[in-house]
Design a protein around this nucleic acid. Structure first.
Lengths: 107, 107
DNA sequence: TTGGTAGTACGAAATTCATCGTAGTAAAGT
DNA sequence: ACTTTACTACGATGAATTTCGTACTACCAA
């Protein structure tokens, strides 16, 4: 079974988290994970980039600690590490999501 | 009299603000402005970079809308645009400062 | 076992970023 | 008028980021 490395809560760095969330493609992923229910395989995000670029962005988010990635068959299921991030940097994620919604309101 | 360009509140972009705050040197500047009283000329920050690099970071912060820069004689006085940022992206700045303090507690 | 699915790894190219030194400028001090 | 101060502009450089295509792999399904 394939597994992927994730930083522990304590290993999360503010530099890295902010840099991860500064990119619009990655912020879109994080926001969608925050809003949505159900399945979140990488392919379901319809990002405006190629498949290999998408892989890069998902890896960047995972290595920053923003998302968790777990294999499920050939797919990778992505979830937001909201609890861990809230514990490490309280209020940060919510402020970013709120800011995103102000700038680009959803529907 | 020399003046410098600043984005209006509405021109502030989340991408740019987050990218500005993702850099440790720039985040240090913003945090110090948030904490301190009195004079804040560029030279008072004792950053671990050369003078020309410091100029670059201050300009990046100004163009993102994070700080305001105004000439006063040969000096430039820097202030945090807290009110504007709070109005545009409520809670964001405070969350970042709180996170910074968790990661690198002041004194 | 053959084929499809969902993603990764790798290498390359383009762009942006962070850094610096040098030279210059505007204002203030003497 | 000259010097000092505090900063900027410019050009260069190296590092990091973002992008992509191609080739590959692990797993599942028929």
């Amino acid at each position: 079974m394939r597994t992927l490395d994730h930083p522990s809560k304590d290993e999360m760095r503010l530099d890295t988290v902010l840099a991860a969330l500064a990119d619009p493609v990655r912020r879109t992923v994080a926001c969608k994970l925050n809003d949505a229910f159900g399945d979140h395989a990488c392919a379901t995000f319809e990002l405006p980039v190629s498949k290999s670029t998408a892989t890069y962005h998902f890896r960047t988010l995972r290595e920053a600690g923003v998302i968790r990635q777990e294999y499920e068959g050939t797919k990778i299921m992505n979830t937001l590490r909201k609890d861990d991030l809230d514990a490490r940097f309280p209020g940060l994620l919510d402020a970013v999501f709120a800011a995103q919604d102000i700038e680009k309101p959803t529907s």
